[in-house]
Amino acid sequence: MTLFDIPTAALLGQLMLGLINGAFYALLSLGLAIIFGLLKVINFAHGAQYMLGAFVALLLSRHFGIDYWAALILVPVLVGLSGCLLERFLLRPIANQNHLYSLLLTFGLALIMQNLFTNLYGSSGNAYPTPEVFRGAVNLGFMHLPLYRAWVIVAALAVCLAAWFVIEKTRLGAYLRAGTENPQLMQGFGINIPFLITLTYGFGAALAAFAGVLAAPLYSVSPTMGANLLIVVFAVVVIGGMGSIVGAVVTGLAMGLIEGLTKVIYPQAATTVIFAVMVMVLLLKPNGLFGKGA
């Protein structure tokens, strides 16, 4: 069976890979959007925090024998705490300056982290073992889907859904949304906005670290794994706009699928197709597909 002269199995296989990449785009752009909403800061360290998540999981398993499941909880907490400290002691002092300075600060931190890990652990990739339960594959009839890949999609979507629930349906989320709209007024109502900001940044960093742990068994753990990914995620954010959580998730998954499709049809363009989509969106709908204004 073929479609456009392409074997269906190959097509579906690439689409599945694309969906997995898309799940990572969705998780990372979600974190960026949450941080941006309250802090008005684009977190350039997001890619580094993703890398940090994967590395901490690797080191915990190497030196302390902590397994995948514990790492999935522990690593986001650790990286999230480091994010809280970073916000409190580095970002807060320049919060009243032009927001471009915060962007540059996080960029500098990303450079430091990436270089530090390159020097300590080399620039080549390190393998992280796939957890026991997910070894093997399931036959879907048209393709063999490795179990771990299926888990990544489920877990990423579950976390996105949980984040949506927390932000839209809980009291803490209501504070967050109100703080995004008008922080001064919320402060006047007795909400501790500075603390909420610290928490939000930590939560965003924790999301990136969670994505990193998920990615560890899938891709090799290397110091540069986050940097190139982050630039693609930026393009995804520009395409989707940072208006809504659903928008971030849908755009992330869609871009993953488009990338997968391109790999089948015209592999040379696979690295550039998302940027090309960004160009088209900028021409047709400059505020992004789900954006609410510049």
Binding site: L90, Q97, Y101, L104, G108, L109, I112, N119
Partner: peptide, 19 residues
């Protein structure tokens, strides 16, 4: 090989103290 760390640190210091 520590160039990235050095440049990154200068970046952070410039932004924090030396705008």
């Amino acid at each position: 090989s520590w160039m990235g760390t050095i440049l990154g640190t200068i970046f952070v210091l410039c932004v924090l103290l030396f705008r």
